[in-house]
Simulated assay, not measured.
Amino acid sequence: MKVTPTAIPDVLIIEPKVFGDERGFFFESFNQKAFNEATGLNVTFVQDNHSRSAKGVLRGLHYQVQQPQGKLVRVVRGAVFDVAVDIRQESQTFGKWVGVELSETDHKQLWVPPGFAHGFLVLSESADFLYKTTDYYAPAQERCIAWNDSALAIKWPAIDGEPCLSAKDTAAMPLNQALF
């Protein structure tokens, strides 16, 4: 597995070794020992999630004020633009973001540590998005930062029209009003 730090070094791009031929491909999508050795982390995942979304759907930017979740995310069908925003108030990169395209063809994964808001925009006709989390989903603790907060200035890829948002994501606050 290849691990590449992003512009925010705690956010990592994980590229598994893929073995392929004319029959198809095989790769280990997760191996705890290999992940810990390659990243230098010692995390335990407690929950796996799977979402399917149509083209133009934007989910996020979500975080939990208690029980913050680290996430290992990947796309098994389609393509997304995945974003992590540092909301660790003591961090030198507080309020900074990184974005990575993830797709079924490149098999890349993104490690989003606890203390980050996370979201993604679906670029393909639909996308199946999988993520492992280091803590359980706690609906009462979940918050959302506005995807289009001008202070963050996230450079989302162009899509036809406005992104499709949930009611929760439509009501999201800008970073400077977010509760941590």
Rank of each mutant, 00 (worst) to 15 (best):
K2G: 09
K2W: 11
V3D: 11
V3K: 00
V3L: 08
T4N: 08
P5H: 12
T6E: 10
T6W: 15
A7E: 15
I8V: 05
P9L: 06
D10A: 09
V11H: 01
V11C: 07
I13A: 08
I13V: 11
E15V: 08
P16N: 12
P16M: 10
P16Q: 11
P16S: 05
P16E: 05
R23T: 08
F25Y: 15
F25Q: 07
F25C: 03
F25N: 01
F25V: 04
F26V: 02
F27K: 10
E28C: 03
E28Q: 10
S29V: 04
S29E: 13
F30Q: 05
N31D: 13
N31K: 09
N31H: 12
Q32P: 00
K33A: 03
A34L: 14
N36Y: 05
E37K: 07
E37C: 02
A38I: 12
L41G: 02
N42Q: 09
V43H: 10
V43R: 07
F45K: 00
Q47I: 13
D48F: 09
N49L: 08
H50V: 11
R52E: 15
R52G: 08
A54W: 12
A54G: 06
V57M: 08
R59K: 12
H62I: 14
Y63H: 13
Q64K: 06
Q67D: 01
G70T: 03
G70C: 03
V73D: 08
V73R: 07
V75F: 00
V75Q: 06
R77S: 10
G78F: 10
G78T: 05
V80H: 03
D82R: 09
V83L: 03
V83S: 00
V83G: 00
A84C: 14
V85T: 11
R88Y: 02
Q89S: 10
Q89C: 04
E90L: 13
E90A: 14
Q92K: 15
Q92S: 15
Q92R: 02
Q92Y: 12
T93E: 01
K96E: 15
W97C: 00
V100S: 12
V100E: 03
L102D: 13
L102P: 14
E104V: 04
D106M: 05
H107R: 05
Q109F: 02
Q109S: 01
L110Y: 12
L110E: 00
F116T: 02
G119R: 09
F120R: 03
L121R: 08
V122E: 09
V122P: 01
V122T: 12
L123I: 11
S124R: 11
E125Q: 06
E125F: 06
E125P: 06
F129P: 06
L130E: 15
T133K: 08
Y136R: 07
Y137R: 01
A138E: 15
E142C: 14
E142S: 09
R143T: 06
C144E: 15
I145L: 04
A146F: 11
N148W: 11
D149H: 10
D149G: 00
S150E: 09
A151H: 01
A151I: 07
A153N: 04
K155R: 08
P157T: 14
P157C: 15
I159T: 04
I159G: 04
G161K: 13
E162A: 13
E162F: 15
E162Y: 13
L165M: 08
L165Q: 08
A167K: 06
A167I: 06
K168C: 11
K168N: 03
D169G: 07
D169E: 10
T170Y: 06
M173A: 11
P174H: 10
N176A: 03
A178R: 02
A178D: 02
F180P: 03
